[in-house]
Nucleic acid binder design. Structure first.
Lengths: 151, 151
DNA sequence: AGTGAAATGGACAAATA
DNA sequence: TATTTGTCCATTTCACT
């Protein structure tokens, strides 16, 4: 992992559909070296895959919500039951266990408030062992970076 | 936007480096139709780009934090000043204005607690007009979906 | 279905450390 | 010495028309 690798990762996060020749020019290396570097970054598991980025607005997903969820019990079984239920719901885009007392942060995308209400009642409220939930709606996205900083 | 388009978007979010022939087989359409559909989804701005996915762990970014930030004032100028400052910091991956009284949710990736402390003191605490901040650390990621549901 | 571009993989010499 | 890089090379796959 040198500065050329980092530049490669930056360029590939920003746009992965460039040709290797273009990438080589951007990072200042030869095409073959570039190709080898990408292959080893993939083999090392640093690059985990390639994905198409979609515009949620144009998919009609105009509502983003962050929901903080606390469990009644922090026992291992109740957490496992909760997490298994989360995995089953497609409307839950993301879920993290956070510091504190068995709190989770969940990210939801919905078409509108009515859809969010349906998700809330037909999905979030069905999660087992929940003691409290607090929803924040994203009114406007200030910044949405593509991926991670490479240092 | 029919069911084939939605299947295409699902497949492309999951893995965008498949060949068109493979995609065609997955969604049950001909290669040429598939190709045309992808081009129009791109032209319509539904597909906004393609990106490489990186493993934050292997980049040494083992600490994920969500920081809720409240401003002292909700005036337009103080919000604009805050948002401009946010845009300038690479360590802030994501920032959303959320419902409530000028609260923001910010996402941070750091190498470790010491690095987070550096970000906290050298970046977050420099943001103008902040009245309070609350950090939650992601102990474990339960679920991280690739992109959005397509319906 | 055909064309052209690009990815892939290999061989070898030069450079680097 | 050992590892990495750059310049060819041939093959094949694939996007695009």
């Amino acid at each position: 992992m040198d500065s050329i690798d980092r530049a490669l990762l930056r360029a590939l996060q920003e746009n992965s559909s460039r040709s290797i020749a273009d990438l080589a020019e951007i990072v200042g290396a030869s095409s073959s070296s570039c190709h080898r570097r990408i292959k080893s970054l993939e083999a090392a598991g640093i690059i985990t895959g390639y994905s198409a980025l979609l515009d949620p607005q144009r998919l009609g997903l105009k509502l983003h919500a962050f929901v903080e969820i606390s469990l009644e019990s922090q026992s291992r079984t109740s957490m496992e039951r909760f997490e298994a239920a989360v995995a089953g719901f497609d409307d839950i885009l993301e879920c993290h266990l956070t510091s504190g007392n068995a709190d989770y942060i969940v990210r939801i995308a919905a078409h509108d408030l009515e859809h969010f209400d349906r998700i809330h009642r037909g999905c979030l409220s069905l999660l087992p062992g929940v003691s409290s939930m607090r929803s924040s709606f994203a009114i406007r996205t200030i910044k949405r970076g593509k991926g991670y900083p490479t240092g």
